[in-house]
Design a binder for these strands. Sequence first.
DNA 1: GAAGAGTACTTGCAAAATGCAAGTGGTTGG
DNA 2: CCAACCACTTGCATTTTGCAAGTACTCTTC
Lengths: 150, 150
Amino acid sequence: MSVTQSSKAKQRSECVFSNVLDLFGDKWTLLVIRDIFFFNKHEFKEFLASPECIATNILSDRLKRLLANGVIAEQIHPENKSRKFYYLTEKGKALLPMLIAMAKWGAIYMPDLNEMQKLYARLREDEKKLLSEVMDAIEQWEAQNIPKSQ
Amino acid sequence: MSVTQSSKAKQRSECVFSNVLDLFGDKWTLLVIRDIFFFNKHEFKEFLASPECIATNILSDRLKRLLANGVIAEQIHPENKSRKFYYLTEKGKALLPMLIAMAKWGAIYMPDLNEMQKLYARLREDEKKLLSEVMDAIEQWEAQNIPKSQ
DNA sequence: GAAGAGTACTTGCAAAATGCAAGTGGTTGG
DNA sequence: CCAACCACTTGCATTTTGCAAGTACTCTTC
């Protein structure tokens, strides 16, 4: 039990923003969510391979928190018991608009557009289409990997 | 010079999300932004009075970072040189959709709806109207308090 | 014009979170 | 059975936070 802050340990106030930040207000949590949404990553080692180089203990902690809060779910890899899949629950999938809003702001106001040009272009071109394409990709992965997607 | 992370000190990667999180990925920064948008707060002591009880050193640091990154601007209080106004720049005002997305998610998935019911109601009722009302309030404050709003 | 209150901070120190390197225990392929 | 892989855990140094106290400046009141 090393989850930095358990499910609803201490909330700083009853404000939505403060509560959302209690869950996602750090430099790593949303990067994991990004990896699932936009890079179709689902395993521990895949998250580790992201360019930000998250440490294994931090990743482990964040996955636990997200699991404990029902944002993601896990499943043993069907082909290998020592591997796991992590995937978004409905609660987690509902975060996409937030990520899109972040990306839109960043695309305009952050100086460095080198990476992710494709995302920006798709964002500018047709946001709703991007949104549905990302969700389609997620659901397609689920159909192939999660036995009974409830 | 105690700003935790200067303007573009070290970026973890060239990903938008990672860059946005380098700026806003903590438990306090967006609460200051929330206070300006939704509670019409503009002074140090007003931010301190929020229910989350931010410490003075943290607040001071966050204001510096936001200033350094052009998200907010400051101005000496016209009636008292020892007071300051902090207000959103265009860059800062553009954060509203992100906050709205956070609030929408929280309104649905966070268990504690006690506070901020009004915001949720307005969000459900007519999001665009809420958005423009918040922006109107901000601009009205500026018209009254910022001499030449450029 | 000195005293007191208010404002926006800074400082110092303890506690917590993070970053890094190394290790652990189970699983699988050969 | 052994080496490689995988998802972690552990230990420890560094960084960030939280808290209490202090400081410098301004304005108000006598």
